[in-house]
């Protein structure tokens, strides 16, 4: 059989093949890699990035970018932990509202969504480039997190809440379940709904989409809102895993998230890409991180290697486009 590198099937599953080779390579060098403990651990670790990155994928598909996801994660995590721990008290009205675990999580997701909607509002209302608008939010949300936490972690959030990050259901870690559900929801959105089709259309040709009667601003608003909410879900996972909300939680997570999207084959100029690609991208980054630790590579070299992998992914992608 004659299979060339340009065969469509190989091209389509390029990132999957890369992941396979990566796993093979690491397991040859370290016998700790291919153990179930380690693999579940890897999946648990990447579940946060997966949640953020599927939201980011929608933004990037629309030819946008969201640099604020890490800070949004931080603020919603802090609010989640704060509400759980001390509730809301309105002294003037002599009122105290306590929060259940679910209540605190929903509140966190709402905060994330609101921050995202604010991003979308600035971008659509004032025609500000997404890069700038979300860069501003990156600083604002981080500042608010510091103000809210006063720079001190909020810890000891109770066993019920801890279960979300550390528990197991049917032999699978809870964070993996949660990220899987998020992925399925977003895959459904992109493939089966008009909303998803509009995202691709806007990213592919915004003017044609506008002329087709699509309400561009509404869609953009919704997408940034979803991205914020996904970041908040990531925030809940991180907080629960540590049983503590750190003031600097999520710092520079936007970079890993954009890396996952790009490695997964989504074009930064919009219109092309898939959510499943992003998931594979996130897994590649996770496996790479894990492998480098197992192989005792210094953290400084880890960063260098990660950067090189991102570059390679994008260069290969560019070359594929040229061959078309």
């Amino acid at each position: 059989m004659n299979i060339s590198i340009n065969h469509p099937i190989i091209k389509k599953s390029q990132s999957l093949i890369a992941l396979f080779l990566l796993c093979l390579f690491i397991s040859l060098l370290s016998d700790k890699f291919m153990t179930s403990t380690n693999l579940w651990n890897v999946l648990r670790q990447i579940s946060v990035n997966v949640c953020i990155s599927v939201g980011m994928t929608l933004v990037v598909l629309m030819a946008g970018i969201d640099l604020s996801v890490g800070s949004v994660l931080g603020l919603s995590a802090a609010v989640c932990a704060g509400l759980l721990k001390s509730g809301l008290s309105f002294e003037s009205m002599d009122l105290f509202v306590g929060f259940t675990v679910l209540g605190a999580i929903v509140a966190a997701m709402l905060i994330g969504m609101l921050l995202g909607l604010f991003n979308g509002w600035v971008i659509t209302k004032f025609a500000i480039p997404p890069f700038v608008a979300t860069l501003a939010m990156l600083t604002i949300a981080r500042g608010l997190t510091m103000l809210y936490t006063e720079g001190i972690p909020i810890s000891n959030l109770g066993p019920k809440f801890e279960f979300i990050g550390s528990g197991w259901i049917l032999g699978i870690p809870v964070p993996v379940w949660i990220s899987l559900i998020m992925v399925l929801i977003v895959v459904f959105l992109t493939n089966k709904t008009a909303f998803g089709r509009y995202i691709y259309a806007i990213g592919g040709n915004e003017k044609a989409a506008f002329l087709s009667g699509i309400n561009i601003n509404k869609i953009k608003l919704a997408v940034y809102g979803i991205a914020g909410m996904m970041a908040a879900v990531g925030g809940v996972l991180v907080t629960s895993r540590l049983n503590s909300a750190q003031p600097n939680a999520g710092m520079s997570y936007e970079l890993d998230s954009i890396a996952a999207v790009v490695i997964g084959g989504t074009s930064l100029s919009g219109g092309v890409g898939t959510v499943t690609g992003t998931v594979i991208g996130a897994v590649i980054i996770g496996v790479l991180n894990n492998g480098l630790v197992l192989l005792d590579v210094s953290p400084f070299w880890q960063q260098v290697v990660k950067g090189i992998v991102i570059l390679l992914a994008v260069i290969i992608d560019k070359m594929n486009q040229k061959n078309k």
Binding site: A194, Y200, N205, V272
Partner: peptide, 26 residues
Amino acid sequence: KTEGLVLGMDISSNISLTNLKALGLL
């Protein structure tokens, strides 16, 4: 090219683009 079509989408998706309900399923 710049106003009529989303060139990276297929024929079927382009034709249906004007006719989708915003909250509907495909």
